[in-house]
Design a protein around this nucleic acid. Structure first.
Ligand SMILES: [Mn+2]
Ligand SMILES: [Mn+2]
Ligand SMILES: [Zn+2]
Ligand SMILES: [Zn+2]
Lengths: 138, 138
DNA sequence: TTATTTATGCAAATGACTTGCAAAAATTGG
DNA sequence: CCAATTTTTGCAAGTCATTTGCATAAATAA
């Protein structure tokens, strides 16, 4: 992921190119999330970014739909890059907290039902909680 | 919902019958949720129950699986009575926050996929966010 | 470059939720 | 029922993720 790509992504959303935005978006565009604010802070060199700035960048990225919020039953939020071509869900291990992706979404039957109730602009949040193979042996 | 039923429910989980537990469980067993801690506090006469007590009762009810936690993208949790014969999900209106129930669950195809990955004890959280018919007109 | 707008860092505030502790209520064993 | 013991409650203070005010720094416009 080069600087030009990140710069272009920010520009396409009308956001100026600043060091914190570059660092945060770089993490989210190059590594597999979802990441907590703490993950993000620790990933930035020299700790040279304030947590207030991270929260403010996240809000802006969410408003612009650059990222999605993911809640996994923890007492904090996680965030991941929003790739419209890669709608997916997550399983988190109830024992070791390892997160896996579920790439197929079989939500259509629900959508039909909800559309029939007259709802529009339907979005969904779906997460799974289970015991992973490694934790079953231990 | 009579006192005897509530008393029996608490007893079946090894919980003693106290005024706060009675009041909170009564609300959860008789009215359609999910309820926030604030909803619960306001529903109790005379405001005669401390929020710390409500949180402690909720923790115990969750441990005993008497209730389920529901997260609807708000900055607080909601809770509803756990009726194993009535597994269901919710739609919350993104505009007026009205909550509707979705009584059919079509989650099986996901479960197959997750089982194939070696996971066991699989649980799921699924919520929908949409615009309700009333808000579409307004 | 200089002026103007926008973003950042720091510290303090917010708000949901938790915890310590003494008093009140519930349970236990006569 | 009572007196002793255990559990629960109310209140106040604490915790922790997230937000906000404000002065400075960085980015953009002229
Ligand atoms: Mn993901
Ligand atoms: Mn419900
Ligand atoms: Zn989906
Ligand atoms: Zn379901």
């Amino acid at each position: 992921m080069n600087e030009a790509k990140i710069r272009a992504t920010l520009k396409s959303k009308g956001l100026s190119y600043t060091r914190p935005r570059k660092e945060i978006l770089h993490l989210l565009m190059t590594r597999h999330g979802p990441f907590s604010v703490d993950d993000i802070l620790k990933s930035i060199p020299d700790g040279t970014c304030d947590q207030a700035t991270v929260y403010r960048c996240i809000s802006q990225f969410l408003e612009k739909s650059l990222i999605k919020e993911v809640r996994l039953g923890e007492d904090f939020s996680r965030y991941e890059f929003n790739n419209p071509d890669h709608h997916h869900h997550h399983v988190i291990c109830k024992s070791c907290q390892k997160i896996d992706s579920i790439d197929n979404c079989f939500i259509a039957p629900f959508l039909n039902q909800i559309k029939n109730l007259g709802y529009t602009e339907i979005e969904h949040a779906l997460e799974f909680f289970a015991i992973c193979p490694k934790c079953q042996k231990a």
